[in-house]
Protein backbone atom coordinates (compact mmCIF):
# COMPACT_ATOMS: atom_id res chain seq x y z
CA UNK A 1 0.00 0.00 0.00
CA UNK A 2 2.83 2.37 0.87
CA UNK A 3 4.37 1.96 -2.59
CA UNK A 4 1.02 2.64 -4.27
CA UNK A 5 0.61 5.92 -2.36
CA UNK A 6 4.20 6.88 -3.13
CA UNK A 7 3.61 6.21 -6.82
CA UNK A 8 0.36 8.17 -6.92
CA UNK A 9 1.96 11.09 -5.08
CA UNK A 10 4.57 11.23 -7.83
CA UNK A 11 2.00 10.76 -10.60
CA UNK A 12 -1.07 12.79 -9.56
CA UNK A 13 -2.59 12.59 -13.05
CA UNK A 14 -3.19 8.90 -12.37
CA UNK A 15 -5.48 9.77 -9.47
CA UNK A 16 -7.85 11.60 -11.84
CA UNK A 17 -7.73 8.68 -14.26
CA UNK A 18 -8.50 6.27 -11.42
CA UNK A 19 -11.43 8.39 -10.29
CA UNK A 20 -12.74 8.44 -13.85
CA UNK A 21 -12.26 4.64 -13.96
CA UNK A 22 -10.04 4.96 -17.02
CA UNK A 23 -7.23 3.00 -15.36
CA UNK A 24 -7.09 0.34 -12.63
CA UNK A 25 -4.59 -0.57 -9.97
CA UNK A 26 -3.35 -4.12 -10.50
CA UNK A 27 -3.18 -6.28 -7.36
CA UNK A 28 -5.35 -3.92 -5.35
CA UNK A 29 -8.89 -4.88 -4.35
CA UNK A 30 -11.81 -2.61 -5.23
CA UNK A 31 -12.18 -1.69 -1.56
CA UNK A 32 -8.52 -0.81 -1.23
CA UNK A 33 -8.83 1.30 -4.37
CA UNK A 34 -11.81 3.10 -2.84
CA UNK A 35 -9.82 3.61 0.39
CA UNK A 36 -7.02 5.18 -1.65
CA UNK A 37 -9.31 7.42 -3.69
CA UNK A 38 -11.15 8.59 -0.57
CA UNK A 39 -7.78 9.51 0.95
CA UNK A 40 -7.00 11.55 -2.17
CA UNK A 41 -10.43 13.23 -2.13
CA UNK A 42 -9.19 15.91 0.25
CA UNK A 43 -12.02 15.45 2.74
CA UNK A 44 -10.34 14.52 6.00
CA UNK A 45 -12.51 14.18 9.09
CA UNK A 46 -10.26 13.43 12.03
CA UNK A 47 -12.61 14.58 14.75
CA UNK A 48 -15.01 11.73 15.44
CA UNK A 49 -17.80 13.29 17.43
CA UNK A 50 -19.10 9.83 18.26
CA UNK A 51 -15.89 8.85 20.08
CA UNK A 52 -16.76 10.91 23.15
Amino acid sequence: MMHVIQYLEKNPDLVSLLKAQKVSLIGISSEEQKAILDAFSGVIDLESEAWK
Binding site: M1, I5, Q6, E31, E32, K34, A35
Partner: peptide, 21 residues
Protein backbone atom coordinates in the same frame (compact mmCIF):
# COMPACT_ATOMS: atom_id res chain seq x y z
CA UNK B 1 1.98 17.06 1.10
CA UNK B 2 4.36 14.16 0.60
CA UNK B 3 1.83 11.39 1.16
CA UNK B 4 2.56 10.40 4.78
CA UNK B 5 -0.79 11.55 6.20
CA UNK B 6 -2.58 10.34 3.09
CA UNK B 7 -1.02 6.92 3.53
CA UNK B 8 -2.22 6.72 7.15
CA UNK B 9 -5.71 7.82 6.07
CA UNK B 10 -5.72 5.16 3.35
CA UNK B 11 -4.91 2.42 5.87
CA UNK B 12 -7.60 3.81 8.18
CA UNK B 13 -10.07 3.73 5.27
CA UNK B 14 -9.18 0.11 4.54
CA UNK B 15 -10.14 -0.77 8.12
CA UNK B 16 -13.29 1.34 7.81
CA UNK B 17 -14.47 -0.70 4.83
CA UNK B 18 -13.52 -3.99 6.51
CA UNK B 19 -15.49 -2.94 9.60
CA UNK B 20 -18.53 -1.84 7.58
CA UNK B 21 -18.57 -5.18 5.75
Amino acid sequence: NGGAIRYAITVKNVYKFKALN
